[in-house]
Simulated scan of single mutants.
Amino acid sequence: MRLSLSGVSVRIGSHPVVEGCDLTVGDGERVGLVGPNGSGKTSLLRTVHRALDPFAGRVALRGDDVKALGQREIARRAALVAQDSAPDFDFTVEEVVAMGRGPWLRTFESATGRAAAPIAAALERVRLADHRTRRLSTLSGGERQRALVARALAQESPLLLLDEPTNHLDVYAALELLELVRGLGRATLCVLHDLNLAAAYCDRLYVLHRGRIVADGPPAEVLHPDLVRTVFGVACTQLTHPVTGGPLLAFSPLPGGPLPAPAEGAGR
């Protein structure tokens, strides 16, 4: 098992954010984490690479508790593409991708020589080899996200952690990025807002509601109308996609307006 969370609870200050969550990601499996804003998705993801330590429970990468691993070893096992994770300085595409080699380089070693091959391979995989010398700021939103995925690929970690990778992307760029991720064949845990994208590209889904996992399983089983109504506060009809044969959700407002929002501090 590439990733296992057992009874994980997270607090920020005195506020409970996530409570008693169990989650697994197996080899080559694409797992989606969905839920409304404030349900705790990003907080749960952050416990995997120890940006947050759980208040209770255990997070294990390849069977080892992350609390027993250094940051370099965690980065060798899991590569993160976070929201708004582009560097503050305007590096070239190749320089950004080369940052992914950091966990494997010795002190003062540069990303050349042995490290050059994974960088070149990552650029080719995301179809940015011809843009290697361009500044990140000159790329489109979709190209920037592909560059950040390439940085994660150059890291050569067997597990990918993606936090809203399609945020701010148009339909074409979002589909292009998720097709790229699907073609990688790597174990992936992906936080997504769009339920139809999650249904189309994930093998299994975990649904977070008010800091707790309330459902998990294949998308067609998980995203049924009653759950969508309760968790997301909208009416939903589950259809069959005419091309893929997978689930396709059609949404509409609930009569009388949405259900009450979760209490403040219930999840982030």
Results as ranks from 00 to 15, higher is better:
residue 258 P to F: 15
residue 60 A to R: 15
residue 94 E to P: 00
residue 130 D to V: 05
residue 183 G to S: 14
residue 181 V to I: 15
residue 209 H to T: 11
residue 169 L to M: 04
residue 35 G to V: 02
residue 101 R to G: 02
residue 175 L to V: 11
residue 210 R to S: 15
residue 83 Q to A: 05
residue 21 C to P: 07
residue 77 R to Q: 13
residue 155 Q to H: 09
residue 47 T to L: 11
residue 186 R to I: 12
residue 79 A to L: 05
residue 150 A to V: 06
residue 151 R to L: 03
residue 240 T to D: 06
residue 40 G to C: 05
residue 77 R to E: 05
residue 268 R to K: 13
residue 96 V to A: 02
residue 132 R to S: 13
residue 59 V to I: 14
residue 55 F to M: 14
residue 183 G to L: 12
residue 217 G to N: 07
residue 104 W to T: 00
residue 257 G to P: 11
residue 74 I to W: 04
residue 31 V to D: 09
residue 128 L to H: 09
residue 108 F to A: 14
residue 235 A to W: 13
residue 127 R to D: 15
residue 237 T to H: 11
residue 73 E to L: 06
residue 3 L to P: 06
residue 118 P to Q: 12
residue 21 C to M: 12
residue 12 I to V: 15
residue 251 F to Y: 13
residue 203 D to I: 08
residue 235 A to F: 13
residue 52 L to V: 10
residue 108 F to M: 13
residue 268 R to V: 15
residue 91 F to W: 03
residue 86 A to R: 04
residue 212 R to C: 10
residue 64 D to W: 08
residue 208 L to W: 09
residue 199 A to T: 10
residue 93 V to Y: 04
residue 9 S to P: 09
residue 197 L to T: 05
residue 176 E to W: 08
residue 71 Q to C: 00
residue 160 L to D: 03
residue 100 G to N: 02
residue 136 L to P: 01
residue 54 P to C: 11
residue 214 V to W: 04
residue 217 G to H: 07
residue 158 P to E: 13
residue 115 A to R: 00
residue 103 P to M: 06
residue 106 R to N: 00
residue 143 E to Y: 13
residue 217 G to K: 06
residue 107 T to P: 09
residue 80 L to E: 08
residue 127 R to H: 14
residue 205 L to K: 08
residue 184 L to W: 14
residue 84 D to M: 07
residue 205 L to C: 11
residue 164 E to P: 05
residue 216 D to L: 08
residue 31 V to H: 09
residue 254 L to A: 10
residue 267 G to H: 11
residue 256 G to H: 07
residue 243 V to F: 09
residue 244 T to W: 02
residue 157 S to M: 08
residue 63 G to I: 08
residue 67 K to V: 14
residue 210 R to G: 13
residue 13 G to A: 11
residue 131 H to I: 03
residue 103 P to S: 02
residue 177 L to T: 15
residue 114 R to F: 00
residue 249 L to T: 12
residue 116 A to I: 00
residue 202 C to Y: 06
residue 46 R to V: 04
residue 176 E to P: 04
residue 193 H to V: 07
residue 72 R to Y: 03
residue 190 C to T: 14
residue 203 D to Y: 07
residue 188 T to M: 05
residue 16 P to T: 12
residue 61 L to D: 07
residue 219 P to M: 09
residue 188 T to D: 07
residue 229 R to N: 00
residue 245 G to E: 04
residue 63 G to S: 07
residue 235 A to P: 13
residue 243 V to C: 04
residue 142 G to E: 13
residue 92 T to V: 04
residue 173 A to K: 02
residue 98 A to H: 01
residue 234 V to R: 00
residue 149 V to P: 01
residue 136 L to E: 02
residue 109 E to H: 03
residue 187 A to V: 10
residue 126 V to M: 12
residue 56 A to Y: 14
residue 56 A to C: 14
residue 105 L to A: 02
residue 183 G to W: 11
residue 241 H to C: 06
residue 79 A to I: 05
residue 163 D to Q: 01
residue 215 A to K: 09
residue 133 T to D: 15
residue 199 A to L: 10
residue 164 E to T: 02
residue 8 V to H: 07
residue 234 V to Y: 01
residue 69 L to E: 06
residue 69 L to F: 07
residue 73 E to W: 03
residue 57 G to F: 12
residue 247 P to G: 09
residue 225 P to F: 08
residue 52 L to M: 10
residue 190 C to D: 01
residue 219 P to K: 10
residue 248 L to P: 04
residue 195 L to V: 07
residue 104 W to P: 00
